[in-house]
Design a protein around this nucleic acid. Structure first.
Lengths: 192, 192
DNA sequence: CCCATTTCTTAACTTAAGTGAACGAGTTAT
DNA sequence: ATAACTCGTTCACTTAAGTTAAGAAATGGG
């Protein structure tokens, strides 16, 4: 787990042993059981998550219906908007597999960033990169049909389709569960 | 225009007169005529844009069709993914009104950031904030129908509907121009 | 000023997604 | 063991978006 983290960090900046130890001494690793809710609508939080193992999802409850909007798996980072905007959360975050997470607090990050300017640089690079990825993702979503989105997901994150319940996948694709079932049946029919 | 810029920056960090002059001496302001293409598909570029006045859009050409995915107006910042990823651009950027832009080069930013750590901090804060906004935007898009998206846009960016051609708005909403026409007629009918 | 082009709207038809209901399979709780 | 849920699928029906075509309105260039 430590290695997974440092491999990730090394993509952005190189750390000395001292710096690595400084991070480890913060004791950020958390084991989280499947089904645990990490953040609820209306809550204020300063926690960001980095997934070392497992899967977490973000979802809204709109008219009593769960609407899943994102999945975060190995090596994915999530800082909920409420942490940035210092507002109550608009969505839920929950754990859909037994997971190992790195949980960091924004107060702590401020402190670390001022002590180690390298972290400031890493955070900037990381959020720029995530923003670019997010933009491309959004663009692909906008420019394609539900069927294309599903086929695209099948290419890009085939694991998700295995490890995530269908009704959560459906809202991730912006459609109803019944439509996802139908759409998959349609695709199978085309192949034959 | 200078004031617009410094007002914007002051939301993140406070600058000394020297720092302000340092920025101005970089001579980043550009007047751009309506219709100008700032970036083409396949091109490599290191330029980021900040809109002081006017409007620019990003679009793809897919199967010969323009697909507009974003509009940037006053006080909006755009760093195309190709600048972050150092890859050829997947989309076009063009100017849809006579505009005044601040155009900054990523090489230059690296230099400025190392000279003034304040800028590094500002860039981090800015991209974190943009990422949070983008996430919420994407979530709203996923969880709503084309009609809801249009009504939502009418609330949040009513100016866009005035200043932007309908067929560009349509792909921004993820639908065909004909569907946007129909949808608007439907809404008018409901009101009466 | 006029022609060519682009833009927007409308209409008819096709296709796919939304909706409500029902069913079986698998899970959980009692 | 059985009842109560959840989950995924299927069906019939409704609604809305995609598609193709046509025409009116606005725009731009010569």
């Amino acid at each position: 787990m430590k290695n997974t983290l440092f491999d990730f960090i090394s993509k952005y900046v190189s750390l000395t042993e001292d710096e690595k130890n400084a991070i480890l001494s913060l004791d950020l690793f958390r084991s989280v059981k499947k089904g645990t809710t990490l953040l609820k609508e209306g809550q204020k939080s300063k926690d960001s998550y980095f997934v070392l193992k497992g899967c977490i999802r973000t979802y809204y409850i709109i008219d009593g219906e769960e609407k899943t909007t994102a999945f975060y798996t190995e090596m994915d980072a999530l800082t909920p908007p409420c942490v940035i905007n210092k507002t109550p959360s608009e969505y839920y975050v929950s754990c859909i597999e037994d997971s190992i997470l790195l949980v960091s607090n924004s107060d702590m990050e401020v402190e670390v960033n001022s002590k180690f300017p390298k972290f400031e640089i890493m955070c900037r690079m990381l959020s720029e990169e995530l923003l670019a990825k997010q933009q491309i993702n959004f663009d692909e979503f906008k420019t394609s049909s539900p069927e294309q989105r599903y086929l695209n997901l099948l290419q890009k994150r085939p694991d998700l389709i295995q490890r995530v319940p269908q009704h959560q996948l459906a809202s991730y694709l912006g459609i109803q569960p019944q439509s996802l079932s139908r759409l998959r049946a349609r695709i199978l029919e085309k192949k034959s």
